[in-house]
Each structure stands twice: as C-alpha cells, then as structure tokens.
C-alpha cells in the first residue's frame, strides 16, 4: 500500500509551517527529507505518525502502518537492553527480538541496563526498536544522531533490508546513507508571512 500525501499543510502551535506538500512513498521506496533547522521536518513527521492532526490535506495509507522514531528513544534506564526491546515487541504484538539485536550488534549488550549505555549504543537500541514493530512504514527523525560511522552502516543496511522486504521509509537526515532514495527538500514548501495571515489563532485560545 502506497503512502499518499495530498495537499498537506502541517502546523506547529497553530501556525502553519509547511504547506502544499504532495508526495507518495511506494512499498520498497525510501524518501529522504532535507531542509534547514526549524523548517518543519519534525512537525511533518509527527503529523505523518498521527501524533498531531494536519491543518488541511490528506494522508492516505498511514493508519496503523507507521513505526515512528524521534529524537528520544523511549528507553528505560532501569531495564536491560533485552527487556526494553521485549517490551516494545510485545506492545506491537511481536515476540522475537533476536534479529533486531543482531542487526544492530547489540547481542553482547543484551543484559546491560539501558542507563549504562553510551549515547550511540542507546541510539542503536532505539533504532532496533523499529525492527520489532513489524510495521511497514518507518518514519525516522534524524536517526543517525550520535551514531559512529560503523553504526551508520548498520543502520543503512537495516533500512535496505526493510525496503527489500517491501517496507518503506521516510527519513529526515542530513548525511548520505548510500540509499537509493528520492530526496524531498521541504524549503520551497515553507509557509511565509503572507500565507500565514489568515491562519488559525489556535495558539492564543
């Protein structure tokens, strides 16, 4: 099922940040979002993930198919690596966490408390969570933050495997992952002062 975005306008705090977005992400394809800081990439991804409603426009084919990973990984410091993963696996109705541990080279760390991991290891665990969701569309917000070069390769390989299995991915990132992906620069879609003029004043209500 293709993810179809039609004439989407996303807002942050009631003010539109991106307008007139139209794109599709077919199974097996990846879309890389680019744009300067504050241009609305995170807002767009949160809207796609269903965390906030769009101001206008349509998102088709996203219902219950999206796995979302943001800046924070949702890890509990007092649980071990395996316990963290197993929790998310069972929330998504899955059991096997072995492949996820293997693909991010976390087997040796599986009984370490997540609180004792380094920033990069935490990030790897957060990304391994995507593998236990069994959801076809990955929505990733700056996934490579604090990853070293080797871990970035692990991540690129995991995404490639996911795409080959018929999944799709929308990734906001600034580094080249070596993926065959379409690139969408959000800068031209930024809402300007004029287009904001008639906007909702929800933020002040």
């Amino acid at each position: 099922m293709t993810l179809v975005i039609r004439d989407l306008c996303v807002a942050r705090g009631g003010l539109p940040v991106l307008m007139g977005l139209n794109f599709q992400v077919a199974p097996g394809r990846a879309l890389v979002l680019r744009g300067p800081n504050g241009s609305g990439k995170t807002t767009l991804l949160r809207t796609l993930a269903g965390l906030q409603p769009p101001l206008s426009g349509e998102i088709g084919g996203a219902e219950d198919r999206i796995a979302y990973a943001a800046h924070s990984d949702g890890l509990k410091a007092m649980l071990s690596v395996a316990e963290n993963l197993r929790f998310w696996a069972s929330v998504f109705g899955q059991r096997d966490i072995g492949p996820a541990l293997r693909s991010y080279a976390l087997e040796d760390l599986h009984d370490r408390l997540a609180g004792t991991l380094s920033a990069g290891q935490k990030r790897r665990l957060g990304l391994a969570r995507m593998l236990v969701t069994a959801r076809p569309v990955w929505v990733l917000d700056e996934p490579t933050v604090s990853l070293d070069a080797d871990a970035v390769l692990l991540f690129a390989r995991a995404v490639r495997t996911h795409l080959e299995a018929g999944g799709s991915a929308i990734i906001a990132t600034h580094i080249d992952l070596g993926l065959e992906a379409e690139v969408l620069d959000v800068t031209p879609f930024r809402a300007t002062a004029e287009t904001r003029a008639g906007a909702s004043d929800e933020a002040f209500l």
């Binding site: 993930a49 965390l51 979302y68 924070s72 990984d73 509990k76 998310w88 929330v91 998504f92």
Partner: peptide, 14 residues
C-alpha cells in the same frame, strides 16, 4: 514523557 515513551505509545497499536 521525558524519555519519549508516551510519543511511541501513542503511535503503537495499544
């Protein structure tokens, strides 16, 4: 909320 679990729970099937 702080560690982002709520965001992820909100996008989960639960």
């Amino acid at each position: 909320w702080e560690d982002g679990t709520l965001d992820l729970l909100a996008t989960s099937p639960l």
